[in-house]
Design a protein around this nucleic acid. Sequence first.
DNA 1: ATGCCTGCAAACGTTTTGCACATAG
DNA 2: CTATGTGCAAAACGTTTGCAGGCAT
Lengths: 156, 156
Amino acid sequence: MPRELVYFSPALSPRDYRKRVSDIFSRELARQGLRFTSQRRRILAELMKAERHLSEEDLYRALAPSGIGRTTVFRTLKVLKACHLVEQVSGTDRPRFELRWERPHHDHLVCVSCGRIQEVRWPKLEQIQERTCRKIGFIPQWHRHEIFGLCSGCAR
Amino acid sequence: MPRELVYFSPALSPRDYRKRVSDIFSRELARQGLRFTSQRRRILAELMKAERHLSEEDLYRALAPSGIGRTTVFRTLKVLKACHLVEQVSGTDRPRFELRWERPHHDHLVCVSCGRIQEVRWPKLEQIQERTCRKIGFIPQWHRHEIFGLCSGCAR
DNA sequence: ATGCCTGCAAACGTTTTGCACATAG
DNA sequence: CTATGTGCAAAACGTTTGCAGGCAT
């Protein structure tokens, strides 16, 4: 159900964006002595063409007909996370995955009724967080900020 | 490993606090036609006396010797969540549960090295969040804000 | 040719469910 | 007394692993 994502950095066309992300993945794999297989290519493609946050299940269902196994989806998601190309977020049900590259950091508003996920950018919040962390000597590495509630459509 | 919690609202003595939370649970159960059994009482007591965020495993290990089954721990945690007496947070490993009643809302700093969980109160952040939500017609019900990184001790 | 990658099936750890008995109200 | 709660064992679920064969480099 989740929708409403803007995947493309304004400076790049969708096509260029896809090429760019693909190149980054391939380079990152090479750097680690790993291989850019057709399965990994297709899983990344599926993530890029999606207009919502996909779960492992979503990916598997989309790609199983073409012969990709569950294990490979799990393993590829792990590699993508390790490359910081994909981030895992919690939906209302299962973990979901989103492409991060070339996209500004943002937080999530998750509708508990329809599952829609909206994205919010909160530079001011990030700033306050960093200041507080610095003050108490905590070195932030990543964070997860998810607000659950009713989206405007379901609020009625 | 997580520690460093302040469970008591400053206005209440620990003893009064425990009585209060217990009463709230009992009343909430009654309201739903459910029963305040000895198991539920003891699970809540365990959560109240804990000085850290407990996992289901923690609770089970603490209470199994006195004959409480795994199933009951899971089921009771579910009831407690439904009553909004307990909130589920992600640690570095498994889900953990914390009492919410009479405690001000706060966010979490999770150390990925030692597992320590520090709590932060960010009224200013909450305020910004609420303002944004109101602006776009999103009705927030709860939120999860967890920052992962290195605590001051592990930063060295 | 080598060594990483794949798919399958089996293992795994966590959470849920079906059931007969126990117990709170 | 009756409906809800309990504990056990088994099932279900999402995820990981071991292995034999496949493929990118």
